[in-house]
């Protein structure tokens, strides 16, 4: 390992040690959920889950499985801490986050446990950076109680097609209305802006539609301002699963492929804006 700077204490004292040869595998996926400063980290032997929330209405989770890391050692069943995500991202990209092939930043992340700072050792081209980020009291994340048995409608799309639609959305509209239905119009995005209403329809037999499982016609509105951060995840992803449950809660799951071709997931939950009369 190129990391030569080691703290004086042995790894044995850390409750969590994680190493990556390419820090972009972590920083890129964290950028997809970076819309608020506070991020809750929860590490288990399966990997790392990072949660960011806004206004108790929106929650984003990024999952980085332990296999993504070259080393992932955890001494307890579950380790949680909260840090400032903006600061963390600045630290992770301290060498500029170069995309030049062959130039990667290696990372070693260590955590001593409750009350200790999160330590990062980064190395690129023989230059070493040591960061100590103060951790905060972890807050309990909201449980959206979104479970797969409760899913009313589900579609899986190629991200390209949704990216195109999102880039053309009328941002003057306060809400984005999503209609999912087993019959026409199948999957529809609607905006109600200053210059009129717009609808984007996806036929269910489109090449872009990988899976179409709609059992019931459902129309829900979501605040545009809440959905906007999810476009960061959309930009990175190759597939996206759009699901709604019986109460109209929206789940967006993004499948993200990293530099090494491994797969990670980012997930957004969003509350519906208001109830629309159902047919």
């Amino acid at each position: 390992m190129p990391l030569s700077t080691q703290s004086d204490q042995g790894d044995g004292q850390y409750v969590l040690v994680a190493s990556l040869d390419n820090v972009r595998n972590l920083s890129n996926i964290l950028k997809a959920i970076a819309f608020k400063d506070h991020a809750l980290f929860n590490a288990t032997p399966n990997g790392l889950k990072v949660t960011v929330e806004d206004s108790k209405c929106l929650q984003a989770n990024a999952f980085i499985q332990s296999e993504i890391f070259q080393e992932f050692t955890i001494q307890e069943d579950s380790v949680s801490f909260q840090v400032n995500l903006t600061v963390l991202l600045d630290c992770l990209t301290i060498f500029g986050g170069s995309t030049v092939p062959g130039v990667t930043t290696a990372l070693r992340l260590c955590y001593n446990g409750y009350g200790y700072p999160l330590k990062l050792f980064l190395e690129e081209g023989g230059v070493v950076t040591v960061c100590k980020i103060n951790t905060q009291e972890p807050e309990e994340p909201i449980d959206f109680e979104f479970c797969s048995t409760n899913v009313t409608n589900k579609v899986i799309l190629q991200s390209d097609s949704l990216r195109e639609a999102f880039s053309e959305l009328d941002m003057t509209s306060e809400v984005l209305q999503i209609t999912m239905s087993p019959s026409q119009p199948y999957f529809r995005l609607s905006t109600f802006g200053n210059s009129g209403n717009a609808h984007y329809d996806y036929p269910k037999d489109s090449d872009m539609m990988e899976l179409f499982q709609c059992t019931k016609t459902q129309t829900n509105r979501y605040k545009m301002s809440l959905l906007k951060p999810s476009t960061k995840a959309l930009a990175l992803s190759c597939k996206v699963s759009v699901r709604t449950d019986s109460q109209g809660f929206l789940s967006l799951q993004y499948l993200v492929r990293n530099d090494d071709g491994q797969i990670c997931f980012v997930e957004y939950y969003c509350c519906p804006d208001e109830d629309v009369e159902e047919e």
Partner: peptide
């Protein structure tokens, strides 16, 4: 700062 301390070390 209150939030973080960062030090980058160059050698040789």
């Amino acid at each position: 700062t209150d939030l973080v301390s960062v030090s980058t070390h160059f050698r040789d």
